[in-house]
């Protein structure tokens, strides 16, 4: 699971008012290089919850993202490289996503989050 996916996932347990962002429990992180697409990053940038990305990247051991950003930074290659690395190259291979309100764990095995709810959670 990449941090892009983490940035889009939330806890949707019945009764939870704010299930975003999910806390990350890290067991194993892997890095996989992938070609950078500036068009894709520019498209995604306004849709990203930035603070959640910065915090998630830090949890995964990457602390290079600036806290404060604006769209003019998309012209900088240095910024694009860091954004790309945090968003698409860090994978949570084993671990869990944890609901910020209830503490419910959603396991991540072999990089695939299991977001299914139990019957009494829907």
């Amino acid at each position: 699971m990449r941090l892009l996916t983490h940035n889009m996932l939330s806890s949707n347990i019945k009764g939870v008012a704010n299930g975003f962002p999910l806390r990350i429990e890290v067991e194993k992180v892997v890095e996989k290089q992938v070609e950078l697409s500036a068009d894709f990053l520019r498209n995604l940038f306004p849709k990203i919850e930035w603070k959640a990305l910065v915090d998630a990247a830090r949890t995964m051991g990457y602390a290079e993202l600036a806290e404060e950003v604006d769209s003019s930074m998309l012209d900088s290659n240095e910024f694009l490289n860091k954004f790309h690395h945090a968003l698409l190259e860090l994978h949570l291979e084993e671990g869990a996503l944890v609901c910020p309100e209830t503490g419910r764990r959603f396991p991540v095995n072999k990089g695939i989050p299991n977001m299914l709810l139990h019957e009494d959670e829907v």
Partner: peptide
């Protein structure tokens, strides 16, 4: 390089945060 991720979930109880993404 164009495949992002997959996850296990139900569309009716989608875990995606509701935003125009």
């Amino acid at each position: 390089h164009n495949f992002l991720d997959s996850f296990i979930s139900d569309l009716v109880h989608t875990p995606l945060r509701r935003a125009q993404i």
